[in-house]
Design a protein around this nucleic acid. Structure first.
Lengths: 190, 190
DNA sequence: ACACGATGTCTACAGTCGTATACTACGACC
DNA sequence: GGTCGTAGTATACGACTGTAGACATCGTGT
Protein backbone atom coordinates (compact mmCIF):
# COMPACT_ATOMS: atom_id res chain seq x y z
CA UNK A 1 0.00 0.00 0.00
CA UNK A 2 1.34 3.40 -0.92
CA UNK A 3 1.27 6.35 1.43
CA UNK A 4 -2.27 7.70 1.79
CA UNK A 5 -1.44 11.07 0.39
CA UNK A 6 1.52 13.36 0.52
CA UNK A 7 -0.01 16.54 1.95
CA UNK A 8 2.75 18.61 0.43
CA UNK A 9 1.95 22.25 0.76
CA UNK A 10 2.28 23.24 -2.82
CA UNK A 11 3.18 26.82 -3.32
CA UNK A 12 1.01 28.62 -5.80
CA UNK A 13 1.77 26.86 -9.03
CA UNK A 14 -0.90 26.41 -11.63
CA UNK A 15 0.94 23.79 -13.67
CA UNK A 16 1.82 21.64 -10.66
CA UNK A 17 -1.70 21.85 -9.29
CA UNK A 18 -3.15 20.87 -12.62
CA UNK A 19 -0.82 17.91 -12.77
CA UNK A 20 -1.70 16.88 -9.22
CA UNK A 21 -5.40 16.93 -10.07
CA UNK A 22 -4.79 14.90 -13.20
CA UNK A 23 -2.81 12.23 -11.37
CA UNK A 24 -5.39 12.02 -8.61
CA UNK A 25 -8.07 11.69 -11.27
CA UNK A 26 -6.29 8.82 -13.03
CA UNK A 27 -5.92 6.93 -9.77
CA UNK A 28 -9.48 7.55 -8.67
CA UNK A 29 -11.13 6.80 -12.01
CA UNK A 30 -9.08 3.62 -12.34
CA UNK A 31 -10.05 2.49 -8.88
CA UNK A 32 -13.75 3.31 -8.92
CA UNK A 33 -14.81 4.20 -12.45
CA UNK A 34 -16.18 7.38 -13.96
CA UNK A 35 -19.44 7.36 -12.08
CA UNK A 36 -17.91 6.04 -8.89
CA UNK A 37 -15.88 9.08 -7.94
CA UNK A 38 -17.01 12.62 -7.37
CA UNK A 39 -15.05 15.70 -8.18
CA UNK A 40 -14.80 16.36 -4.46
CA UNK A 41 -12.96 13.07 -3.96
CA UNK A 42 -10.45 13.87 -6.65
CA UNK A 43 -9.97 17.40 -5.42
CA UNK A 44 -9.39 16.24 -1.86
CA UNK A 45 -6.83 13.70 -3.03
CA UNK A 46 -5.02 16.46 -4.87
CA UNK A 47 -5.24 18.78 -1.89
CA UNK A 48 -7.45 21.42 -3.47
CA UNK A 49 -11.11 22.32 -3.63
CA UNK A 50 -13.52 20.87 -6.12
CA UNK A 51 -13.97 24.06 -8.05
CA UNK A 52 -10.38 24.06 -9.23
CA UNK A 53 -11.25 21.07 -11.36
CA UNK A 54 -13.76 23.08 -13.27
CA UNK A 55 -11.36 25.98 -13.53
CA UNK A 56 -8.56 23.87 -14.99
CA UNK A 57 -10.45 21.22 -16.92
CA UNK A 58 -13.85 22.75 -17.59
CA UNK A 59 -15.89 19.84 -16.29
CA UNK A 60 -15.65 16.37 -14.81
CA UNK A 61 -16.14 14.91 -18.26
CA UNK A 62 -13.23 16.81 -19.78
CA UNK A 63 -11.06 15.84 -16.84
CA UNK A 64 -11.94 12.23 -17.51
CA UNK A 65 -10.99 12.63 -21.15
CA UNK A 66 -7.54 13.92 -20.23
CA UNK A 67 -7.10 11.22 -17.62
CA UNK A 68 -7.99 8.51 -20.11
CA UNK A 69 -5.64 9.93 -22.68
CA UNK A 70 -2.77 9.96 -20.20
CA UNK A 71 -3.55 6.48 -18.91
CA UNK A 72 -3.75 4.96 -22.38
CA UNK A 73 -0.52 6.48 -23.61
CA UNK A 74 1.74 3.41 -23.57
CA UNK A 75 4.62 3.73 -21.17
CA UNK A 76 6.42 0.46 -21.65
CA UNK A 77 5.95 -0.67 -25.19
CA UNK A 78 6.19 -4.38 -25.80
CA UNK A 79 7.73 -5.04 -29.16
CA UNK A 80 9.23 -8.00 -30.90
CA UNK A 81 7.47 -10.30 -33.28
CA UNK A 82 5.46 -13.44 -32.77
CA UNK A 83 6.55 -15.54 -29.86
CA UNK A 84 8.45 -12.74 -28.16
CA UNK A 85 5.50 -10.39 -28.11
CA UNK A 86 3.09 -13.10 -27.02
CA UNK A 87 5.33 -14.33 -24.24
CA UNK A 88 6.19 -10.93 -22.86
CA UNK A 89 2.60 -9.73 -23.01
CA UNK A 90 1.39 -12.81 -21.17
CA UNK A 91 4.08 -12.47 -18.54
CA UNK A 92 3.39 -8.82 -17.71
CA UNK A 93 -0.36 -9.40 -17.86
CA UNK A 94 -0.24 -12.16 -15.28
CA UNK A 95 2.14 -10.17 -13.11
CA UNK A 96 0.04 -7.02 -13.17
CA UNK A 97 -3.18 -8.87 -12.42
CA UNK A 98 -1.71 -10.88 -9.58
CA UNK A 99 -3.89 -10.91 -6.44
CA UNK A 100 -1.59 -8.74 -4.34
CA UNK A 101 -0.61 -6.12 -6.87
CA UNK A 102 -3.30 -3.47 -6.92
CA UNK A 103 -1.82 -2.09 -10.06
CA UNK A 104 -3.33 0.73 -12.03
CA UNK A 105 -3.61 0.60 -15.75
CA UNK A 106 -5.75 1.35 -18.76
CA UNK A 107 -7.58 -1.96 -18.71
CA UNK A 108 -8.86 -1.39 -15.20
CA UNK A 109 -9.85 2.13 -16.11
CA UNK A 110 -11.71 0.88 -19.13
CA UNK A 111 -13.53 -1.89 -17.29
CA UNK A 112 -14.55 0.24 -14.34
CA UNK A 113 -15.92 3.03 -16.53
CA UNK A 114 -17.71 0.85 -19.05
CA UNK A 115 -21.16 1.82 -17.80
CA UNK A 116 -21.35 5.45 -18.84
CA UNK A 117 -21.85 6.08 -22.57
CA UNK A 118 -19.94 9.36 -22.46
CA UNK A 119 -17.03 7.55 -20.84
CA UNK A 120 -17.06 4.72 -23.36
CA UNK A 121 -17.01 7.11 -26.28
CA UNK A 122 -14.00 8.87 -24.80
CA UNK A 123 -12.23 5.56 -24.30
CA UNK A 124 -13.06 4.35 -27.78
CA UNK A 125 -11.30 7.36 -29.22
CA UNK A 126 -8.33 6.87 -26.89
CA UNK A 127 -7.91 3.23 -27.91
CA UNK A 128 -7.96 4.16 -31.56
CA UNK A 129 -5.27 6.73 -30.84
CA UNK A 130 -2.91 4.81 -28.60
CA UNK A 131 -2.82 1.05 -28.00
CA UNK A 132 -4.88 -0.02 -30.97
CA UNK A 133 -2.80 1.89 -33.44
CA UNK A 134 0.50 0.88 -31.92
CA UNK A 135 -0.33 -2.79 -31.73
CA UNK A 136 -1.73 -2.81 -35.24
CA UNK A 137 1.54 -1.46 -36.55
CA UNK A 138 3.48 -4.01 -34.55
CA UNK A 139 1.44 -6.90 -35.91
CA UNK A 140 1.94 -6.80 -39.61
CA UNK A 141 0.11 -9.05 -42.01
CA UNK A 142 -3.50 -9.47 -43.00
CA UNK A 143 -6.20 -8.59 -40.51
CA UNK A 144 -3.68 -6.88 -38.29
CA UNK A 145 -6.22 -4.46 -36.84
CA UNK A 146 -8.66 -7.23 -35.94
CA UNK A 147 -5.91 -9.37 -34.45
CA UNK A 148 -4.63 -6.42 -32.43
CA UNK A 149 -8.03 -5.69 -30.97
CA UNK A 150 -8.60 -9.34 -30.21
CA UNK A 151 -5.36 -9.27 -28.24
CA UNK A 152 -6.64 -6.25 -26.35
CA UNK A 153 -9.96 -8.01 -25.80
CA UNK A 154 -8.27 -11.07 -24.36
CA UNK A 155 -6.16 -8.97 -22.03
CA UNK A 156 -9.16 -6.95 -20.93
CA UNK A 157 -11.08 -10.14 -20.23
CA UNK A 158 -8.30 -11.51 -18.07
CA UNK A 159 -8.14 -8.23 -16.17
CA UNK A 160 -11.88 -8.40 -15.67
CA UNK A 161 -12.02 -11.95 -14.41
CA UNK A 162 -8.82 -11.84 -12.42
CA UNK A 163 -8.65 -8.36 -10.89
CA UNK A 164 -12.14 -6.93 -11.03
CA UNK A 165 -14.43 -9.88 -10.44
CA UNK A 166 -11.85 -12.17 -8.92
CA UNK A 167 -13.17 -15.50 -10.12
CA UNK A 168 -11.79 -18.44 -8.23
CA UNK A 169 -9.85 -20.43 -10.78
CA UNK A 170 -8.05 -17.51 -12.40
CA UNK A 171 -7.25 -15.92 -9.07
CA UNK A 172 -5.81 -19.08 -7.62
CA UNK A 173 -4.12 -20.38 -10.76
CA UNK A 174 -0.38 -20.86 -10.66
CA UNK A 175 1.33 -17.95 -12.42
CA UNK A 176 3.52 -20.10 -14.61
CA UNK A 177 0.69 -22.32 -15.78
CA UNK A 178 -1.54 -19.33 -16.43
CA UNK A 179 1.17 -17.44 -18.27
CA UNK A 180 1.78 -20.40 -20.54
CA UNK A 181 -1.90 -20.76 -21.38
CA UNK A 182 -2.33 -17.08 -22.17
CA UNK A 183 0.87 -17.06 -24.18
CA UNK A 184 -0.47 -19.91 -26.31
CA UNK A 185 -3.63 -17.92 -26.95
CA UNK A 186 -1.80 -14.74 -27.89
CA UNK A 187 0.45 -16.77 -30.13
CA UNK A 188 -2.51 -17.56 -32.34
CA UNK A 189 -3.02 -13.85 -32.92
CA UNK A 190 0.57 -12.66 -33.09
CA UNK B 1 -36.44 -2.19 -31.15
CA UNK B 2 -39.02 -3.61 -28.83
CA UNK B 3 -42.11 -1.72 -27.75
CA UNK B 4 -41.24 0.97 -25.20
CA UNK B 5 -43.34 -0.51 -22.50
CA UNK B 6 -46.54 -2.42 -22.42
CA UNK B 7 -48.63 -0.32 -20.06
CA UNK B 8 -50.74 -3.31 -19.19
CA UNK B 9 -52.90 -2.56 -16.25
CA UNK B 10 -51.90 -5.43 -14.08
CA UNK B 11 -54.57 -6.46 -11.67
CA UNK B 12 -53.31 -6.75 -8.14
CA UNK B 13 -50.96 -9.69 -8.31
CA UNK B 14 -47.92 -9.79 -6.09
CA UNK B 15 -46.11 -12.52 -8.00
CA UNK B 16 -46.63 -10.90 -11.39
CA UNK B 17 -45.58 -7.50 -10.10
CA UNK B 18 -42.47 -8.96 -8.53
CA UNK B 19 -41.60 -10.62 -11.80
CA UNK B 20 -42.21 -7.42 -13.75
CA UNK B 21 -39.85 -5.54 -11.44
CA UNK B 22 -37.22 -8.24 -11.80
CA UNK B 23 -37.37 -8.22 -15.59
CA UNK B 24 -37.23 -4.45 -15.71
CA UNK B 25 -34.25 -4.58 -13.37
CA UNK B 26 -32.37 -7.07 -15.56
CA UNK B 27 -32.92 -4.91 -18.63
CA UNK B 28 -31.97 -1.69 -16.88
CA UNK B 29 -28.91 -3.02 -15.06
CA UNK B 30 -27.69 -4.64 -18.26
CA UNK B 31 -28.12 -1.44 -20.19
CA UNK B 32 -26.68 1.05 -17.71
CA UNK B 33 -24.95 -0.83 -14.91
CA UNK B 34 -25.64 -1.03 -11.21
CA UNK B 35 -24.83 2.58 -10.45
CA UNK B 36 -26.32 3.88 -13.66
CA UNK B 37 -29.96 3.19 -12.90
CA UNK B 38 -32.07 4.38 -10.02
CA UNK B 39 -34.82 2.44 -8.38
CA UNK B 40 -37.28 4.98 -9.75
CA UNK B 41 -36.23 4.11 -13.30
CA UNK B 42 -36.76 0.42 -12.72
CA UNK B 43 -40.06 1.00 -10.96
CA UNK B 44 -41.34 3.21 -13.75
CA UNK B 45 -40.38 0.60 -16.36
CA UNK B 46 -42.31 -1.99 -14.38
CA UNK B 47 -45.27 0.34 -13.97
CA UNK B 48 -45.10 0.68 -10.20
CA UNK B 49 -43.65 3.04 -7.66
CA UNK B 50 -40.16 2.87 -6.30
CA UNK B 51 -41.14 1.75 -2.85
CA UNK B 52 -42.48 -1.55 -4.09
CA UNK B 53 -38.92 -2.52 -4.88
CA UNK B 54 -38.00 -2.25 -1.25
CA UNK B 55 -41.11 -4.07 -0.24
CA UNK B 56 -40.46 -7.04 -2.51
CA UNK B 57 -36.67 -7.14 -2.62
CA UNK B 58 -35.56 -5.33 0.52
CA UNK B 59 -33.15 -2.96 -1.18
CA UNK B 60 -31.64 -2.03 -4.51
CA UNK B 61 -28.65 -4.22 -3.75
CA UNK B 62 -30.75 -7.32 -3.11
CA UNK B 63 -32.73 -6.65 -6.27
CA UNK B 64 -29.44 -6.53 -8.16
CA UNK B 65 -28.42 -9.85 -6.65
CA UNK B 66 -31.60 -11.51 -7.87
CA UNK B 67 -31.30 -9.88 -11.28
CA UNK B 68 -27.73 -11.11 -11.66
CA UNK B 69 -28.68 -14.59 -10.62
CA UNK B 70 -31.47 -14.71 -13.17
CA UNK B 71 -29.33 -13.23 -15.94
CA UNK B 72 -26.47 -15.64 -15.33
CA UNK B 73 -28.62 -18.73 -15.28
CA UNK B 74 -27.77 -20.25 -18.67
CA UNK B 75 -30.77 -20.44 -20.97
CA UNK B 76 -29.30 -22.02 -24.06
CA UNK B 77 -26.52 -24.31 -22.99
CA UNK B 78 -23.81 -24.92 -25.54
CA UNK B 79 -22.51 -28.43 -25.26
CA UNK B 80 -20.44 -30.75 -27.36
CA UNK B 81 -16.75 -31.28 -27.08
CA UNK B 82 -13.77 -29.55 -28.61
CA UNK B 83 -14.40 -28.13 -32.04
CA UNK B 84 -18.16 -28.19 -31.70
CA UNK B 85 -18.18 -26.15 -28.54
CA UNK B 86 -15.59 -23.72 -29.84
CA UNK B 87 -17.36 -23.20 -33.13
CA UNK B 88 -20.81 -22.77 -31.70
CA UNK B 89 -19.62 -20.44 -28.95
CA UNK B 90 -17.79 -18.27 -31.46
CA UNK B 91 -20.78 -18.17 -33.76
CA UNK B 92 -23.29 -17.09 -31.14
CA UNK B 93 -20.80 -14.65 -29.61
CA UNK B 94 -20.28 -12.84 -32.90
CA UNK B 95 -24.00 -12.86 -33.61
CA UNK B 96 -24.97 -11.47 -30.23
CA UNK B 97 -22.35 -8.72 -30.32
CA UNK B 98 -23.20 -7.64 -33.85
CA UNK B 99 -23.58 -3.85 -34.23
CA UNK B 100 -27.31 -3.87 -34.76
CA UNK B 101 -28.37 -6.39 -32.14
CA UNK B 102 -28.71 -4.58 -28.86
CA UNK B 103 -28.86 -7.90 -27.12
CA UNK B 104 -28.98 -8.32 -23.40
CA UNK B 105 -26.89 -10.86 -21.63
CA UNK B 106 -24.75 -11.63 -18.62
CA UNK B 107 -21.53 -10.35 -20.17
CA UNK B 108 -22.98 -6.90 -20.73
CA UNK B 109 -24.39 -6.90 -17.23
CA UNK B 110 -21.02 -7.85 -15.82
CA UNK B 111 -19.09 -5.26 -17.80
CA UNK B 112 -21.44 -2.42 -17.09
CA UNK B 113 -21.51 -3.10 -13.35
CA UNK B 114 -17.82 -3.75 -12.90
CA UNK B 115 -17.25 -0.49 -11.03
CA UNK B 116 -19.10 -1.14 -7.81
CA UNK B 117 -17.40 -3.52 -5.37
CA UNK B 118 -20.70 -4.74 -3.96
CA UNK B 119 -21.85 -5.52 -7.48
CA UNK B 120 -18.65 -7.36 -8.39
CA UNK B 121 -18.86 -9.55 -5.31
CA UNK B 122 -22.42 -10.49 -6.21
CA UNK B 123 -21.36 -11.32 -9.76
CA UNK B 124 -18.35 -13.33 -8.63
CA UNK B 125 -20.65 -15.57 -6.65
CA UNK B 126 -23.06 -15.87 -9.56
CA UNK B 127 -20.31 -16.90 -11.97
CA UNK B 128 -19.09 -19.56 -9.58
CA UNK B 129 -22.64 -20.85 -9.38
CA UNK B 130 -23.74 -20.78 -13.00
CA UNK B 131 -21.52 -20.41 -16.07
CA UNK B 132 -18.22 -21.22 -14.44
CA UNK B 133 -19.42 -24.45 -12.95
CA UNK B 134 -21.27 -25.56 -16.04
CA UNK B 135 -18.41 -24.85 -18.40
CA UNK B 136 -15.89 -26.48 -16.10
CA UNK B 137 -17.92 -29.67 -16.13
CA UNK B 138 -18.23 -29.51 -19.89
CA UNK B 139 -14.49 -29.11 -20.37
CA UNK B 140 -13.00 -32.19 -18.82
CA UNK B 141 -9.28 -32.73 -18.45
CA UNK B 142 -6.56 -31.00 -16.50
CA UNK B 143 -6.93 -27.32 -15.68
CA UNK B 144 -10.57 -27.41 -16.71
CA UNK B 145 -11.55 -24.61 -14.33
CA UNK B 146 -8.82 -22.28 -15.56
CA UNK B 147 -9.57 -23.06 -19.19
CA UNK B 148 -13.28 -22.45 -18.59
CA UNK B 149 -12.67 -19.07 -17.03
CA UNK B 150 -10.26 -18.12 -19.79
CA UNK B 151 -13.03 -18.87 -22.25
CA UNK B 152 -15.33 -16.62 -20.27
CA UNK B 153 -12.61 -13.96 -20.15
CA UNK B 154 -12.17 -14.05 -23.91
CA UNK B 155 -15.90 -13.77 -24.49
CA UNK B 156 -16.19 -10.92 -22.02
CA UNK B 157 -13.33 -9.11 -23.72
CA UNK B 158 -14.97 -9.42 -27.11
CA UNK B 159 -18.24 -8.12 -25.66
CA UNK B 160 -16.35 -5.21 -24.15
CA UNK B 161 -14.50 -4.20 -27.28
CA UNK B 162 -17.31 -4.92 -29.69
CA UNK B 163 -20.51 -3.91 -27.92
CA UNK B 164 -19.52 -1.63 -25.07
CA UNK B 165 -16.57 0.34 -26.37
CA UNK B 166 -17.19 -0.29 -30.03
CA UNK B 167 -13.62 -0.27 -31.28
CA UNK B 168 -13.32 0.18 -34.99
CA UNK B 169 -11.75 -3.01 -36.25
CA UNK B 170 -13.88 -5.42 -34.25
CA UNK B 171 -17.05 -3.54 -35.02
CA UNK B 172 -16.42 -3.44 -38.73
CA UNK B 173 -14.89 -6.89 -39.08
CA UNK B 174 -16.63 -9.36 -41.33
CA UNK B 175 -18.65 -11.80 -39.24
CA UNK B 176 -17.28 -14.90 -40.89
CA UNK B 177 -13.68 -13.85 -40.59
CA UNK B 178 -14.15 -12.80 -36.98
CA UNK B 179 -15.99 -15.99 -36.10
CA UNK B 180 -13.18 -18.07 -37.54
CA UNK B 181 -10.52 -16.20 -35.59
CA UNK B 182 -12.39 -16.48 -32.29
CA UNK B 183 -13.13 -20.14 -32.94
CA UNK B 184 -9.42 -20.78 -33.39
CA UNK B 185 -8.74 -19.10 -30.06
CA UNK B 186 -11.40 -21.02 -28.19
CA UNK B 187 -10.15 -24.21 -29.78
CA UNK B 188 -6.91 -23.81 -27.86
CA UNK B 189 -8.86 -23.89 -24.62
CA UNK B 190 -11.51 -26.46 -25.45
C1' DA C 1 -72.36 -7.52 2.48
C1' DC C 2 -68.71 -6.54 5.21
C1' DA C 3 -64.25 -6.39 7.07
C1' DC C 4 -59.56 -7.23 7.08
C1' DG C 5 -55.26 -8.24 5.12
C1' DA C 6 -52.53 -7.59 1.17
C1' DT C 7 -51.14 -4.48 -2.50
C1' DG C 8 -49.68 -0.26 -4.06
C1' DT C 9 -48.97 5.02 -3.56
C1' DC C 10 -47.65 9.68 -1.54
C1' DT C 11 -44.80 12.56 0.87
C1' DA C 12 -40.73 13.43 2.85
C1' DC C 13 -35.90 13.19 4.46
C1' DA C 14 -31.11 13.25 4.63
C1' DG C 15 -27.41 12.90 1.67
C1' DT C 16 -24.51 13.53 -2.59
C1' DC C 17 -23.85 15.08 -7.15
C1' DG C 18 -21.77 18.68 -10.59
C1' DT C 19 -21.12 23.34 -11.01
C1' DA C 20 -22.11 28.66 -11.01
C1' DT C 21 -21.25 32.92 -8.50
C1' DA C 22 -18.89 35.67 -5.33
C1' DC C 23 -15.19 36.09 -2.70
C1' DT C 24 -10.18 36.08 -0.48
C1' DA C 25 -5.16 35.89 -0.54
C1' DC C 26 -0.89 35.24 -2.55
C1' DG C 27 3.13 36.87 -5.56
C1' DA C 28 5.33 38.94 -9.26
C1' DC C 29 6.21 43.26 -11.56
C1' DC C 30 7.02 48.38 -11.96
C1' DG D 1 6.18 49.24 -1.47
C1' DG D 2 2.04 49.45 -3.67
C1' DT D 3 -0.98 47.30 -7.29
C1' DC D 4 -3.13 44.10 -10.15
C1' DG D 5 -3.80 39.68 -12.15
C1' DT D 6 -4.28 35.09 -10.87
C1' DA D 7 -4.43 30.91 -7.78
C1' DG D 8 -7.46 29.14 -4.73
C1' DT D 9 -11.67 29.06 -1.45
C1' DA D 10 -16.50 29.49 0.43
C1' DT D 11 -21.20 29.21 -0.20
C1' DA D 12 -25.00 27.80 -2.32
C1' DC D 13 -28.29 25.90 -5.67
C1' DG D 14 -31.08 22.62 -8.03
C1' DA D 15 -31.37 18.01 -9.27
C1' DC D 16 -31.08 13.39 -8.03
C1' DT D 17 -30.25 9.30 -4.88
C1' DG D 18 -32.07 5.24 -1.76
C1' DT D 19 -35.32 4.50 1.57
C1' DA D 20 -38.47 5.19 5.73
C1' DG D 21 -43.29 5.98 7.41
C1' DA D 22 -47.99 7.00 6.84
C1' DC D 23 -51.71 6.54 3.91
C1' DA D 24 -55.14 4.78 0.33
C1' DT D 25 -57.37 1.07 -2.23
C1' DC D 26 -58.31 -3.31 -4.12
C1' DG D 27 -59.85 -8.25 -3.57
C1' DT D 28 -60.95 -12.07 -1.26
C1' DG D 29 -62.89 -15.06 2.54
C1' DT D 30 -66.61 -15.37 5.28
Amino acid sequence: MMAPEAPVKRRRDAAATRQAILEAAIAAFTAHGYAGVGVRDIAAKAGVTAMLINRYFGSKEQLFAEAVDAAFAPRTVISGTGAELAGETARTLVARTAPGADELGPFLLMLRSAADPRATEIMRAAIARHPGRHLTEELAGEGAAVRAELMLALQAGVWLMRSVIGTDALKDAGPDDLTRRIRDLLQVLA
